[in-house]
Each structure stands twice: as structure tokens, then as C-alpha cells.
């Protein structure tokens, strides 16, 4: 019985589109999380959507930012399970996780405070830099 089982028949190991499809959801939800943050950061920098304060924009977009975060992290976990050892030993992946943690903490503490205060050029620049660095560390996983 056991010998008759061939792991090659396992659909998870054979499915050609499951992995890239997960990656697509990962990228799209990343764009949703980061894009909504960028819209608020542009306001903090005195540009972007006119007629509303950063705090107002943030109130109306934060749910979408959160949905983006949840989806990007969930799909990230799924991708991680396909080769945990490779990822854990990858320096760029380690940097990515550190940046993700720093980014999330920053976003919901210092950044949030700057948005509420309605000013903070530096807060916006730091936010944009963290999220851009996170994307760089993600791509470099395949190159280190």
C-alpha cells in the first residue's frame, strides 16, 4: 500500500500553476498594501490627492492597507513552505523579514502618529524607503 504511493502523483508537487498563482496574489496584495501607504505618504509630502489631510486619507484607506498586509503575509507563508531551508539560510530573506517587522512596527506607531499630526516629511520618506528596501530584499533572495 505504502509502496504503491508515488509522491510524483501528489497534485501539489505536480501543479504547474499553483506556485506562480500564489506569487501573483503575493505581488498584487503587496501593491495594495504599499500603494495605499504611498497615497498617504504623498499627502504628507504635500502632493498627491488634494483637498484632504493625510489623516483623512489614511482613515479611508487603512482597511485596504490592512487587507493587503494580511494577504501578502499569508501568501508569503505559503511560498515559504515550498522550501523553508533555502529561505531560512538566505541572507536577503533574513533582511526581508527584519524589514517587514520594522516596517509594520513603524507603520502602526511613529508613522501613524505623523499622519495624525498631518505633517512629517521625514516620516513619509522613511516609510517609502522601508517599503522600497523590502521589495529590493525580496528580489535579491534569488540572487544572493
Amino acid at each position: 500500500m505504502l509502496l504503491a504511493y508515488d509522491p510524483a502523483t501528489n497534485p501539489l508537487n505536480n501543479n504547474e500553476w499553483a506556485f506562480p498563482l500564489t506569487e501573483c496574489v503575493h505581488v498584487a496584495s503587496m501593491a495594495m498594501a504599499i500603494g495605499t501607504i504611498v497615497a498617504v505618504d504623498l499627502r504628507l509630502l504635500g502632493t498627491g490627492i488634494p483637498g484632504r489631510s493625510a489623516a483623512q486619507l489614511s482613515r479611508e484607506t487603512e482597511v485596504w492597507t490592512l487587507i493587503g498586509f494580511v494577504l501578502v503575509i499569508l501568501t508569503g507563508m505559503v511560498i515559504f513552505t515550498t522550501d523553508p531551508v533555502l529561505y531560512l539560510h538566505n541572507e536577503s530573506f533574513q533582511a526581508k523579514m527584519a524589514l517587514l517587522l520594522a516596517g509594520l512596527v513603524y507603520h502602526y506607531t511613529l508613522h501613524k502618529r505623523a499622519v495624525q499630526a498631518g505633517r512629517g516629511t521625514l516620516a513619509a520618506v522613511v516609510s517609502l524607503l522601508i517599503w522600497a528596501s523590502l521589495v529590493f530584499s525580496a528580489i535579491f533572495i534569488a540572487f544572493v
Binding site: A31, M32, I34, G35, T36, W131, A132, V135
Partner: peptide, 16 residues
């Protein structure tokens, strides 16, 4: 990386 950063920033704004 720059290509994907632009997808996150600019693609995200398209989504908004």
C-alpha cells in the same frame, strides 16, 4: 528590484 518597486508604488496607485 526597481521594476518591482514601481509595481508596488505605481501599480498600487492605479489600484487606489
Amino acid at each position: 528590484s526597481l521594476h518591482l518597486t514601481m509595481i508596488a508604488f505605481f501599480g498600487g496607485l492605479i489600484l487606489v
